[in-house]
Design a protein around this nucleic acid. Structure first.
Ligand code: ZN
Ligand code: ZN
Ligand code: ZN
Ligand code: ZN
Lengths: 127, 127
DNA sequence: TTACATAATGTTATATTATAACAATTTAAT
DNA sequence: ATTAAATTGTTATAATATAACATTATGTAA
């Protein structure tokens, strides 16, 4: 549990409080009053936060959410559900899923050190 | 098996022949001699080809590969392995994996209509 | 085969996402 | 105190993707 730098903390707090994934330039707009003025300052903080597992990138949406799943060790194994109507994103925390994927071997017997899984469908509200 | 339009066929052929995933602007450069001059022409063909399942988008790389897996019905269920050194991408065709993920239900019992899974590791050559 | 709807194309402009390059400052460990 | 590593600040630019509008081609049904 390392301490975050000033920019990292500001940006993490913002993402952590957001009910939905946040995009980089939306983050930028929200932190300009706190002195973070340039895209690069945002992207650098995002890179670090992803690296240490505090946030995840939703690749299909180019957006970021805070990790609320202590079992996904440093972002090596991530799974999300995404509603195709309202765009609600939830991190999936399933021991059996992560066990299955962590142990998955392909045809050549290769095991992978990392994965990202994105499920799509309709959330409760949108069904 | 529908017939492709002119632009769609040109762009599919290029991607299909490529040994590696192709990015949109690399595609554009490669088809300019064939009269496709604008990004939008490329993106429109890519959108359609993805929609009908002839190609897939590798979300973490913003790149496209041809589908060589008849069992992934119209791109609703895709899985790839990605080498983090040489960026080689392979479509994974595993009946047990697709069965597991297609039947996966989250905590609320929700089933998903679609998923995309990207595994990361080192390919044979790079290990 | 005309009429109509749908799909695809062509074109210009612009929006969105992300990194390069370089200088300065802060932090943490000797 | 010295030094290395990490972080910050700043400007410019690269890479990825869509909006808006006009035109042309294709398929379907009276
Ligand atoms: Zn997580
Ligand atoms: Zn929803
Ligand atoms: Zn496929
Ligand atoms: Zn490799």
């Amino acid at each position: 549990m390392q301490t975050l730098s000033k920019n990292q903390q500001i940006i993490f707090d913002l993402i952590d409080k957001s009910p939905e994934p946040m995009k980089a330039y939306s983050i930028l707009h929200n932190v300009q009053k706190k002195g973070i003025k340039a895209p690069l300052q945002v992207y650098r903080a995002l890179d670090k936060l992803v690296e240490i597992g505090k946030i995840h990138k939703i690749e299909s949406r180019n957006a970021f959410i805070a990790c609320h799943n202590s079992s996904c060790q440093v972002s090596k194994a991530t799974a999300f559900s995404i509603c195709e109507i309202c765009e609600k994103v939830t991190e999936i925390s399933s021991a059996s899923l992560s066990k299955y994927l962590t142990n998955f071997k392909d045809k050549d017997g290769m095991k992978y050190s990392k994965y990202n899984l994105e499920f799509f469908g309709l959330c409760k509200k949108c069904r």
